[in-house]
Design a protein around this nucleic acid. Structure first.
Lengths: 239, 239
DNA sequence: TAAATAACTTACTAGTCCGTACATTATGAG
DNA sequence: CTCATAATGTACGGACTAGTAAGTTATTTA
């Protein structure tokens, strides 16, 4: 008799949560011993390790066995919860993007004038890329695969684009105030900012190998952060 | 008795050329029949197919068997000429970079004033990225692997940086003429230009999936090309 | 407490993939 | 023409890798 009754290979994207109790005390002892079996903890741990491994080695390069070995659980659980390597990878992407979007939603530059607002947004985008190199690697990897996992994920389709919406509002305000001369498109500006922020992380290794400059070094980071703001503002305020 | 006497797995990076005779006529017939055995043609064909396969699938994702199947020769020859998957990949990178540098060396903007010179350079860089998506994918892939193959390649270390040298000269001229106010660093400007050009190709798939915009569409390409020039010039001429 | 089921483990398999041993043939030199 | 050797083909092995079958234990629910 098999112990698993519901479809054991289905990952439905929803969390099978009990009421949140991250450190359940053991029913017998009553003291703060962790539950030996905890679906949420196990799933979270798999996702965390998988994120690192996929970011490090790419989709094909990452090994299911290795991911399993790095968790406190076994490979079988990956298939139990996620269904397979590909679905695990998709789940990793979904989680990573969800976190990014959440950060973007927290952006608040409403109290600033358009020029300072766009500069601040650019700098925060800069900082955010700096702080999440694994995410950037995942995006690079996903592009190698023609974004096929992102394209087919309903979760990712419904995340919205907080940063883009914010830029749209800033540009409108700038045009009304007369600060921004150019009739710049919000998506274009977003792309320009993203390019700069993304490249210095994503291409740091080839850049260093070819030009001998470590783009992540503090002195360059500070200068580039200002440079990005200067460049975007110069472009929008026109000449 | 083995037919191979010299080290069969060594790829020395030099070409084992006979005097160039791309279409040797058959000694017997005299008509333009290709030589059945042609080391240079075989090597070139392997490199060409390998470039495509590595660009498409990444280093780990590319299959030696598949590369061999797509050529008119066999897997054995890949090992005969290149030594292994990794050396083949390095050879692919070396060839791709050599071609890029050659294009860069052909850049000529000496007849232009600084402002038009930097704009033209930016636009040509833009066009060049547009024309070589496989190269861009290879660079992305190499960054996933921390540029370990580029770092250890003596060939790539000695290629120089024609584009960067050119920017250095343009910036000097611009400062002397007074057109460029900012004391911008040449490497920074190169990075800014590269970022923009690289990103719209490398990240086109995730960008399209998330923002619904095809960055390679003609109408956007034309606008972005101008936008890049505008942005760099605005930055350098200051506000 | 007992039954039901969710959570987890072990051991295995079928297929893939890089690399190689060995055999063979075309080609150019003398 | 003949011989040395560069160039190529065939067939296979051994390690790896995604995925699975079958069984066990903890936890919850009634």
């Amino acid at each position: 008799m098999t112990g698993v009754v519901r479809d054991p290979y289905a990952y439905d994207g929803r969390s099978r949560c009990r009421p949140v109790e991250p450190m359940t005390s053991h029913p017998a002892t009553g003291v703060g011993r962790e539950r030996q079996r905890d679906a949420d903890r196990t799933k979270a741990e798999i996702l965390e390790i998988a994120t690192r491994e996929f970011a490090r080695h790419g989709y094909t390069g990452a090994r299911v066995d290795e991911i399993a070995a790095l968790t406190r659980t076994t490979k079988r659980m990956i298939y139990y919860y996620f269904g397979g390597k590909e679905q695990l990878y998709t789940a990793v992407l979904e989680k990573a993007y969800a976190e990014v979007r959440a950060t973007e939603r927290a952006l608040d530059v409403d109290h600033l004038g358009p020029v300072e607002a766009i500069r601040t947004l650019a700098e925060l985008t800069f900082d955010h890329h700096e702080a999440h190199p694994d995410f950037i690697r995942l995006v690079s990897i996903e592009n190698i695969h023609h974004a096929e996992h992102i394209r087919t994920s309903p979760v990712l389709a419904s995340l919205g684009t907080p940063a883009l919406d914010l830029i749209t509002r800033i540009l409108e305000a700038g045009r009304e105030s007369g600060d921004f001369t150019a009739s710049a498109d919000a998506t274009d500006v977003h792309m320009a900012i993203s390019s700069f922020c993304f490249f210095r992380i994503s291409n740091q290794h080839t850049f260093h190998a070819l030009f001998g400059r470590d783009l992540t070094a503090a002195k360059h980071r500070t200068r580039h952060r200002r440079m990005l703001g200067d460049m975007i503002v110069a472009y929008l305020t026109g000449t």
